Simulated assay, not measured.
Amino acid sequence: MTITRTSVRRGSLITAVLALLCSAFLVLPANADPLPFDDCPANTLCLYSGTGGTGEREDFTDRENRETYDAAWDDKTLSAKNNTALWACVYVEARYGGKLQTIKPGNDDEYATDPSFNGAISSHKLVPSRAHCFTGYERCPDNRVCTFTQERGRGAMSAHLPATDPVTGNYGNSYGTEAAPKSVFNRTRKHVCFYPEPGYTGTWTTDPTDPAERTYGAFVVLRGDSTTVPKPYTGTFRSHELVNGTSECQ
Rank of each mutant, 00 (worst) to 15 (best):
N43R: 11
L126P: 07
G106L: 09
P115T: 13
L28R: 14
P34L: 04
T44D: 07
T68G: 02
G50F: 05
D39K: 15
V27Y: 05
E64T: 14
T113I: 03
D142Q: 14
L100N: 11
N31I: 11
N118F: 06
P41Q: 01
Y48A: 06
I121S: 05
S123Y: 05
Y91M: 03
N31D: 12
L28C: 09
Q101R: 15
D75T: 04
F134I: 06
H124T: 12
D33C: 00
F148N: 08
E110H: 10
E151V: 09
C133R: 01
E110L: 07
T149L: 10
E58N: 09
G55K: 08
T77P: 03
T84I: 06
Y91I: 10
D74P: 00
T147M: 15
C133Y: 00
V92F: 05
N143E: 15
Y137Q: 06
Q101V: 14
N65P: 08
D38V: 00
A32W: 00
G52L: 12
R130I: 07
R152G: 02
E56F: 06
G136M: 02
V27R: 04
D33Q: 08
A85M: 12
P36C: 01
D114I: 05
T51E: 15
P115A: 13
L126M: 11
G136F: 03
S123V: 12
A72M: 04
F134K: 10
L47V: 08
W87Y: 15
L86C: 00
Y48V: 05
K104L: 06
V27T: 15
C133S: 02
E58V: 07
C146H: 05
R152F: 10
G136L: 04
A88L: 10
T44Q: 14
I103Y: 01
V90M: 11
E110W: 03
A32G: 07
R144Q: 11
G136C: 04
A32P: 15
N31A: 11
A42G: 08
L47A: 12
N83Y: 05
R144P: 00
E93S: 11
E58S: 13
T102N: 13
D109R: 11
R139H: 14
L126K: 01
L35R: 10
D59S: 15
D142P: 01
F60G: 04
E138W: 12
K125N: 11
D75S: 13
D62R: 10
L78I: 04
G97W: 05
G50W: 06
Y96T: 05
F134N: 10
N82I: 01
K76D: 02
R144M: 08
L100T: 07
Y48N: 09
N118P: 06
R66C: 09
A94H: 02
E67H: 00
T149M: 10
P41F: 07
L45Q: 01
F148S: 08
T149F: 04
D70V: 07
L35G: 06
P128V: 12
Q101Y: 11
F60Q: 05
K99Q: 14
A120F: 08
D142V: 15
C46W: 03
W73D: 00
N82D: 05
E56T: 12
K104T: 04
L45P: 07
S122E: 14
L28G: 06
R144T: 12
P115W: 03
C133N: 07
A30C: 06
T68P: 02
E58D: 11
S116Y: 09
L47T: 11
I103G: 02
V92R: 09
N118V: 02
R144D: 04
S129F: 09
F60C: 07
